[in-house]
Amino acid sequence: MIQLQATHKLYERLPLTSDGQFNVTPRTEWIYKQPLLDINPLSHWHGNLVTLQRRNCVLLVHDETRFPLVLPALTKPDFVELNDRFDDALMNTLLKFGAEGSHMETAHRYLRPLQVDTQCSRSVQGTLNRMKEEFDHLLHYDQLNVAEITGYNAGAWLAESPRTVKGRGYLWPHKEMMGLLSRLASRE
């Protein structure tokens, strides 16, 4: 599973089963067939639901690397397919950085269904709040309509900003994620 710690605002909008997962859909059937992992290095994400230009957007950040994903202009069916939207955003945001084939294959190998709860870290929530302000600024400055973008470029743009992590100093999210994927690829 990929653990997603959601804010209460996001958690209340998610159509989850009693065990904190999404129902299997034709788009997500393949990830539910993947073998279980004891430790998944792509796990531990935080998510927040924000409203920008009167549209629901979900911002996600990987705890360890602070790598961001942007899911703009979500509708009710998108929340049902959040597993698929997460996978799509992760893979396409990685492509925006020119991820090599080994990075993409490694990321794909660790994709699993989302397991959602509400145990959030204040440090990561601070990163999510800063991301919201930066994304809002990007939309305003570039005069973008949030309903007309995919979010991949916005995620890549946000990943190029340094993030502070208590006890670790400054991190560059795109370098941290590529480093993590490189380490995982070299193990196999």
Rank of each mutant, 00 (worst) to 15 (best):
M1E: 05
Q3N: 14
T7G: 11
H8N: 15
K9A: 13
K9R: 14
E12H: 14
R13N: 13
L16D: 06
S18L: 08
S18W: 10
S18G: 04
D19T: 14
G20Q: 02
G20L: 04
F22M: 04
N23D: 14
N23R: 15
V24I: 15
V24A: 08
T28I: 01
T28R: 02
I31D: 03
Y32A: 09
K33G: 01
K33R: 15
Q34R: 15
P35M: 01
L36T: 13
L36W: 11
D38I: 08
D38C: 03
I39Y: 06
N40C: 10
P41V: 07
H44L: 09
H44S: 11
H46R: 08
H46W: 13
G47N: 02
G47D: 02
L49F: 12
V50A: 10
V50P: 10
Q53Y: 13
Q53E: 14
R54Y: 14
C57F: 06
V58M: 09
V58W: 12
L60P: 11
E64S: 15
R66I: 04
P68H: 09
P68G: 12
L69V: 09
L69S: 05
L71C: 06
L71A: 02
P72A: 05
P72S: 07
A73Q: 01
A73K: 04
K76E: 13
P77I: 07
P77Q: 06
R85F: 07
F86S: 03
D87S: 15
D88G: 03
D88T: 15
A89D: 03
L90K: 02
L90I: 09
L90C: 07
M91D: 02
T93F: 10
L94Y: 01
L95W: 08
K96D: 03
A99N: 06
A99W: 09
E100W: 01
G101N: 08
S102T: 05
E105Y: 11
T106M: 01
A107P: 07
A107K: 00
H108D: 06
L111G: 06
L111W: 04
L114A: 06
Q115W: 11
V116H: 10
D117F: 09
T118S: 09
R122V: 09
R122N: 14
V124F: 05
Q125I: 05
Q125N: 15
G126D: 08
T127K: 00
L128M: 11
N129W: 11
M131K: 03
E133P: 00
E133N: 11
E133G: 06
E134K: 13
E134S: 09
D136F: 05
H137W: 14
L138D: 07
H140T: 14
H140S: 14
D142Y: 15
Q143V: 06
Q143M: 04
L144T: 03
I149N: 02
Y152T: 05
A156H: 11
A159C: 13
S161C: 00
P162Q: 11
R163W: 12
T164I: 12
K166Q: 14
G167I: 10
R168N: 04
R168E: 07
G169M: 07
G169N: 10
Y170A: 14
W172S: 11
W172M: 12
K175M: 09
L180Q: 03
L181R: 00
L181T: 01
R183E: 04
L184K: 00
A185D: 01
S186Y: 02
E188M: 10
